[in-house]
Structure formats: C-alpha cells, structure tokens
Design a protein around this nucleic acid. Sequence first.
DNA 1: CTATCAACATATCAAACAAGTAGGTTAATA
DNA 2: TATTAACCTACTTGTTTGATATGTTGATAG
Lengths: 131, 131
Amino acid sequence: MISTRGRYALRVMIDIAENGNGNYIRLDEIAKRQGISEKYLESILVLLTRGGLLEGLRGKGGGYKLTKEPSEYTLGSILRLTEGSLAPVACLKEGADTCQKSVSCKTLPVWKEYYKVISDFFDGKTLADLI
Amino acid sequence: MISTRGRYALRVMIDIAENGNGNYIRLDEIAKRQGISEKYLESILVLLTRGGLLEGLRGKGGGYKLTKEPSEYTLGSILRLTEGSLAPVACLKEGADTCQKSVSCKTLPVWKEYYKVISDFFDGKTLADLI
DNA sequence: CTATCAACATATCAAACAAGTAGGTTAATA
DNA sequence: TATTAACCTACTTGTTTGATATGTTGATAG
C-alpha cells in the first residue's frame, strides 16, 4: 500500500506544476487547495526539498517551486523519496543484508520480478502525464 | 509492501504442495522446515483454511492439505486472503466509500491502472509456477 | 471408552509505524 | 527593523505487525 505521504506528495507536485508557472508558491496555499493540514504537508515538502525535487525560499515572496520540468519527474522518483523505497518485500530493500535462504528461496524470483514491474510502471510515467 | 503474513503464506503453500502428496501435513513440521514459530504459523493457516485454500483435519494423522491442484491456486488468491486486499491505495479498497474528490482527482487514474497491473501480475501466476 | 494427538479458538503483548500536532528558529524581503 | 514564510525538533495518538500463551474441540489408536 502506498501511504498518504506518497499520495499527498504526488498531488502536491501536480499542484505546484499547475499553479506555479515558475513562481514560488506558499505552503498554506497548497494546503488549502489540497485540503491537507499545513503542518503535515510541511513534513512532506521537507522530504521533497531535501531530495532536490523542489526548491524552497523563505521570507516574503517565498514558497516552493519545481527545480525541473514536469516531464522530467518520474513518479518513481517522487514515491521513492516519500515512501522510502518501492521494494515489495523487506529482503529486497536497498541496504538489506541478504537472506541466508535466498539461494533456495522459491519465492524470491517472484518478488524480484514484481519489483521490476513496479519500478517500470512508476519510472515510466512522469508528472507531465498527470496534468 | 507485502507483509510477512503474505510472504509466509506463499512459502507455506509451496511447502505443502511439495511435501504433501495428497496427505495431511502437521503444522509443526511445516513450522520447522520453514523456520516460522508454530503459533504465528497457526494464525496464517487459519486464514488459508477458512478461505477454503486448505483443508484441516484434527487428531492423530491430522494436519493440513491442499484442496485443489497447485496450478489452480493463483498467487492473487493467496495474497488477497492473507493481506486483506491488493489495492494500492485506501480509496480503491473494496467497500471503501468513494472519495468526494474522485471526479477531479488527478492521481486516481494512475492508482487504478497500477491496481490492474498488480492484479494481473499476481492472478497470472499460480503455485505451480513456483515449484 | 479413554488417552493421545493436533487442529481450532481466544486473548494478550511489545514494538513499530502512520498520521497528525505544537512551538520555536532562521533567513529573506519590504 | 518588522514581517513573512520556510525550516527544524519533538511529541502525541491510534493502528498494525508480528508474536506468544493458554485453553477447547474433535479425530484416531489402543
């Protein structure tokens, strides 16, 4: 299951792409439009900003804006940042120590294949496809 | 993410298919072979039995056995039972009240398409493919 | 008919995570 | 220098996951 964090992140990126036009947009504007609490939204925008998908500017006239064109953001890049990983099982998470049973594991090939299906799906779509 | 419950369920179904040969297999045998605690395994076997994927018999000579051929079990049917649903987002879960924003929601089509990809993947594979 | 066996049932628990809240700090701009 | 709005840290609350413990029912063997 994709958590609300990831789902909100997609909606917010679309919001900025649609309403930004290269200008900075304030957090409270986005929160109001999307019906998300300002504080919760903030925790999501922090992730997107730290990950380089958004640029934040403080003070009057500040806000958030995209760092690239909508067509350059894959959904995978947004979800990986907010969900942590797209791996369907723990043993396939990047950085996980390889399971001892992996050699004889009858299910591992399915999870690997599934992981590829997921990745291909989300990396094959961009923000521009959703607008 | 697929939880351990679903992952164990797959492994257990494979175990019974491989070691059963139509006979009843005891829970503790499966637990030992798969390295799962007996009690935790029990909670999974209950789901599979109630869902009609396995048949349980009590007393001496009892245990669990498959109710059909391995090729007749899709991975989808096993995972849906143990994971509850394969829906990638809450608003697509069967029985969920339709979101008010669904008409204007820019992300809903992606989730629907993704849901189909997931379903097709797991319904397109059977236990027999894993043995 | 009784002891044993093994599935069935119910209740509880600790840890982790999701989702959301609260309050204070820094850096731009007017 | 005041205001603005992003940034940062910490906390709360509820749910889920994974697991454990104890007891009950029904089938079989002797």
